[in-house]
Amino acid sequence: MDVLQQAFAWLNDPLNWTGRNGVIALTVAHVTVSVLAVLLAAVVALPVGLWLGHRGRGGTAGVVVANTTRALPTLALLTLLAASGLFGNTATVLACAVFAVPPLLSGAVTGLGDVDADVRDAARGTGMSGARSLWSVELPLAVPQLAAGVRTGAVQVLATVPLAALVGGRSLGSIVVEGFGTQNYGQVLAGGILVAALCLVAEGLLAVAQHLVTPAGLQALSRDGRSSGRRRPSRRSAGSTAPPSPPTDDAHAPLAVATSNDSNGSGSPV
């Protein structure tokens, strides 16, 4: 029988959906682990990112962290944690949280770093303290990039969690791994479709959420910007006056371009 038919047969079998290892239970486990991982990462990354961004430094540190974790394979971290005695979902949450930190951190740092210096000056001029300026002026202006960071991080975690099935975590990835183990390729394909669908749906929902949390004023601003100019040059890299915007001798410069794209695009593939 054709593999695609097998996959649909598998998806159509109600027994595969219910029960302790059914699709529904596994989806719930998958989403629970992901949410926990994102929350854990947010608790660590957001305060640090906000502080660094508010102080106006830490840009390079963020880039270094982001690049190191990009090179560290997810599987390596998962097997390392699992082998050191943390089995199952604790290891999954920890490992995924590590990979969600860079997008959140860079979202916070670039979001606050891109706040217009004049706006900051004005806030100080009206007598706001640093904390108040951060809370009621800079933070709302940074919301779009903060939200983009959260979105990238969350989708990345959702995509990483399936890998944990290899080291014994329960998630939709278990279906794929079990399918490979039993050489049931219909089930493998069905699991792959389910995981992909979950990620795409989450990405869509989070995009809507990102739109909703953006303050109305900023939305109007970006609409105006889009209708008048064709497209804003990507932050400070294209619009600068330096002729052939080359990488300077700072080794991190070219990567900084790439990671700044990242904060509103997608993170590293997992």
Binding site: A159, P162, V195, A196
Partner: peptide, 17 residues
């Protein structure tokens, strides 16, 4: 971009058959 969102495990799973 859509391709990029699909997790690698899922992509390998879809391709493998």
């Amino acid at each position: 971009g859509v391709m990029y969102t699909v997790p690698s495990l899922a992509l390998f799973a879809v391709l493998a058959p």
